[in-house]
């Protein structure tokens, strides 16, 4: 039971990370296509300015949850996926310093350097996370000692690439919609137009993703075995169409919530379909790392559950407050007046 609860917490931590940092990563990826002049660039940066750092901590938490609750899975996953993980870390390092460094010096060359870091540091994590999770859904070549029998190129298989591109596209739409909630006038119209244009590809890719998932992974079979979990892919589809519907009606915030629903739905569908495997072995299912054979001791799981039950609601409360407090529309005046990136 404890293991099952922790599996759920593990999945939720990843889902919330994708929902929150997803729009940062998407906006960073779209940066060169959306932001042309200096105001537009700064508007994009400031739209995520007060939030990206708190969002990224969800990744640390997801990593920490894996380490604390499923140390064996943490050890095998992180050492097995060594190279992609290092690439992810370096990309996030570059993305992370852009906000503070870019504004410090008023020179086009200086700003160009950090603009490039933002794009690379956003696109690469989105892609890598997609590739990694698709491969985790599909199963990794793990031998009986949990050793990963492959390399970076093993991961770049057709389904892995579909996963990567899907993540990038979903995050881009998510980011464009986020930008539309915090801007006005022409620039907002541009963000909405971008979101709607990308939505068509996103919808097409969603179909490809769901079909290839049925071909390459056991997710559908597992979910169909407990049909009440079908609610998750249904919510995702609802979110997908909600995005388009709300954007068309000009309800940007609602479109963003639909977008979040899509991300939560897809991620949790994947998580529910994996249960109880954290790392499915494609060599032999018996070699798989599960929530049960990799879990920490019951005492650790209980103490950590206490910590999560006490502190996570507080985290969610103050992060919501911050989103609420700093959600105002960005204008050239607001960037001049107040502290900004």
């Amino acid at each position: 039971m404890l293991e099952t609860i922790w599996f759920a917490i593990w999945g939720v931590a990843w889902a919330v990370y994708f929902m929150l940092d997803g729009f940062d990563l998407g906006l960073g990826t779209l940066f060169p296509f959306l932001a042309k002049d200096e105001f537009e660039k700064r508007a994009v940066l400031n739209s995520m300015g007060p939030f990206w750092d708190g969002n990224e901590v969800w990744l640390i938490t997801a990593g920490g949850v894996t380490f604390a609750a499923f140390p064996t899975a943490y050890a095998i996953m992180f050492s097995g996926l060594y190279t992609p993980l290092m690439l992810l870390l370096f990309a996030l390092i570059l993305r992370g310093v852009v906000f503070e460094f870019r504004r410090q010096i008023d020179s086009p060359a200086w700003k160009r350097v950090w603009d490039t870091c933002l794009v690379v540091g956003s696109f690469l994590p989105a892609l890598l996370l997609g590739v990694a999770f698709a491969n985790i859904f599909m199963g990794l070549p793990l031998d009986k000692d949990g050793l990963f029998q492959g390399n970076l190129f093993t991961l770049l298989n057709p389904y892995g690439l579909v996963g990567g591109i899907t993540f990038v596209l979903v995050f881009c739409v998510h980011g464009a919609i986020w930008l539309s909630t915090r801007t006005q006038g022409q620039f907002q119209a541009k963000a909405v137009a971008m979101a709607k244009k990308l939505w068509i590809f996103e919808a097409l890719l969603a179909v490809v993703f769901l079909v290839t998932t049925a071909i390459y992974t056991p997710l559908w079979a597992n979910v169909l075995a407990k049909p009440y979990w079908l609610i998750l892919p249904l919510l995702a589809v609802l979110g997908l169409f909600g995005q388009w519907f709300m954007l068309s009606k000009g309800r940007c915030w609602r479109a963003w919530f639909c977008s979040s629903l899509l991300i939560l739905g897809v991620t949790l569908f994947g998580v529910a379909g994996m249960f109880p495997n954290l790392l499915l072995s494609s060599e032999n299912p018996a070699y798989s790392v599960t929530a049960f054979n990799s879990a920490s001791s019951p005492l650790t799981l209980k103490i950590m559950l206490g910590v999560v039950v006490c502190f996570l609601p507080i985290v969610i409360a103050y992060q919501t407050w911050v989103y609420f407090k700093f959600r105002d529309v960005i204008t050239p005046e607001s960037l001049k007046e107040g502290p900004s990136y």
Binding site: V57, I60, T61, F67, P71, S296, T300, F311
Partner: peptide, 22 residues
């Protein structure tokens, strides 16, 4: 040692690092 060491790191993230970064 994940049973012990991992939980201390996870507590750090959820109790303190979230606050600091937000």
């Amino acid at each position: 040692v994940g049973d012990i060491f991992g939980s201390l790191l996870a507590i750090e993230a959820s109790v303190a690092f979230f606050l600091e970064s937000t």
